[in-house]
Simulated assay, not measured.
Amino acid sequence: MAYDDAARRARALSGFKVRDAAFHWLTFAAAVAVLLLLGGVIASLIHGSIPAFRAFGFRFFVTNVWNPAIDQYGALAAVYGTLVTSFIAMIIAIPIGLGVAIFLTELCPHALRRPIGTAIELLAGIPSIIYGIWGLFILAPFLQAHVQPGLIALFAKVPGLNILFAGPPYGIGLLTAGFILAIMVLPFVSAVARDVFDTVPPLLKEAGYGMGFTTWEVIKNIVIPYTRVGVLGGVMLGLGRALGETMAVTFVIGNADTIPSSLLAPGTTISAAIANEFTEAVGDLYTSSLIELGLILFIITFVVLAISRLMLMRLEKQGGR
């Protein structure tokens, strides 16, 4: 009997080892597959960009010419539009997203937290083409009629800003695209911020209130410092979405291959340029230039994520001290 029990235990242990080894190699294969897929994307982008790079070199990154008729291409206008619209989106989405998260975790009645939180998160599930249609037929005419004329008049005599908000009010343009992107990235910022705000130990907040802190002081001195790593992660997640958004921006940015001095004027982004022109690209150089645009967008996104990762590591070290 004792021998049989020992044999069964040995077989069970052997089975555990086999299953554990199989699970180890399965997860390892999944990780390697992701790396191979990423490497394949990078390699294909680099390979497809070679003809354009041979033709234009580094001038491709700093010139503002995009003329398929004479096979002259430059990425500066698209890069400028991508960075500007993403910056506008984050300027709008960060304070609103954090405000929503603070309201839901600190001020909102418990009965309303779930419905409001769910409604905001549903914004992330709306297809981008719906945002684009709404932006083109509803938001752009509203901005053209009621917002942009006011901005032009307000900043007409302010040096610098009178250039950024110069007319005429087209409705579509960089500012409208930034508004659309802000709405699209808002649920990412607010959802992540709300989740990390919920991780703050109640004892810390109660200690702050016990010392006489107001709600704002508790948020500023306890909640935000305690969750700053998570909040930054949510902001960078939203920025990554803003940089790569295609269809919604394509509808409302105007798709003009220029670098406008005014935020109210039409422009373009990398993703919008690729979406508009890839199906019509004729010739190897035209196609290669569009692929090189995709490579530039990949590099921009990678740099942003790398910087955010370094910032997170720095914040974690500071928090440890």
Rank of each mutant, 00 (worst) to 15 (best):
residue 311 M to K: 01
residue 270 I to S: 09
residue 189 V to F: 05
residue 230 G to D: 05
residue 31 A to I: 12
residue 68 P to E: 05
residue 281 A to W: 03
residue 149 P to T: 08
residue 114 R to C: 09
residue 19 R to N: 12
residue 125 G to V: 09
residue 81 G to E: 02
residue 211 M to D: 12
residue 229 V to F: 05
residue 286 Y to W: 12
residue 318 Q to C: 06
residue 253 I to Q: 02
residue 11 R to K: 14
residue 52 A to H: 00
residue 27 T to P: 08
residue 119 A to W: 03
residue 220 K to V: 15
residue 181 L to E: 06
residue 63 T to L: 03
residue 147 V to M: 08
residue 310 L to A: 15
residue 248 A to W: 09
residue 239 L to F: 04
residue 275 A to Y: 03
residue 180 I to H: 05
residue 219 I to A: 01
residue 20 D to C: 14
residue 288 S to M: 08
residue 265 A to L: 02
residue 98 L to N: 01
residue 12 A to V: 15
residue 220 K to L: 15
residue 286 Y to T: 05
residue 101 A to D: 04
residue 106 E to V: 05
residue 28 F to A: 15
residue 207 A to H: 11
residue 251 F to T: 01
residue 105 T to G: 03
residue 315 L to Y: 08
residue 29 A to Q: 11
residue 243 L to Y: 04
residue 164 L to F: 12
residue 276 N to T: 14
residue 251 F to N: 03
residue 194 R to I: 00
residue 245 E to I: 08
residue 305 L to W: 03
residue 282 V to N: 13
residue 115 P to N: 05
residue 310 L to V: 14
residue 189 V to I: 15
residue 129 I to P: 07
residue 58 F to K: 13
residue 312 L to P: 07
residue 12 A to Y: 14
residue 114 R to D: 13
residue 76 L to V: 06
residue 229 V to T: 13
residue 85 T to G: 08
residue 173 G to Q: 05
residue 71 D to H: 10
